[in-house]
Amino acid sequence: MNQDIEARKQELLKEGYEEVYTRTKVLTDAVMHYCPGCGHGTTHRLIAEVIDEMGIQDNVVGVSPVGCSVLAYNYFDVDFQEAAHGRAPAVATAIKRLNPDTFVFTYQGDGDLAAIGTAETIHAANRGENMTMIFVNNGIYGMTGGQMAPTTLVGMRSATTPYGRRVDLNGYPLRMTELLSTLPGTYYVTRQSVQNPAAVRKAKAAIRKAFENQRR
């Protein structure tokens, strides 16, 4: 924690300023490894803020995926498990079933949740597992260098679709939100973005709702 910054904060409070926003303590001091401007950081922040505001830091377990956010456990000051590629929903299923009073969430990318882990995702949702899955979709495999993901849009260029995604070759992007919404076991599914302040506020409200739904 930077001493000068702390001192300046105290100064402002003395001058009659009120705190509107500051970094939540549910995030650790570790500097995130994400690329500058990446929405992962924002999404991490929102989840951490929701955990903070709900006062459940001592009763939450997160599951990180394989992909860019594999190291998410270093950034949240909560108990965390790192799952094998795509298996976070299965891992979280057991955490929740064996610890029904604990808040459980997975944090997964599109390669993890919508390609290699599609079966786990669909079955966890369809069993109505009482947990929250945060699906961060950037339309690409980021960690491995920008290859095509199941969510890559038609025409979109990637390391493995250098001339753009072709339907005749690669099929269509998988619409995970719509797919899950058709399952009777899914309680709440929504698509949000973190591209501007209004969207961020909406996304945070959605994350809050998803966590609140775990209350029994």
């Binding site: 904060k9 970094r23 995030l27 500058p36 990446c38």
Partner: peptide, 10 residues
């Protein structure tokens, strides 16, 4: 919107 949460606001 700050991904790294580096801004505090008063």
């Amino acid at each position: 919107v700050c991904p790294d949460g580096v801004i505090s606001v008063y």
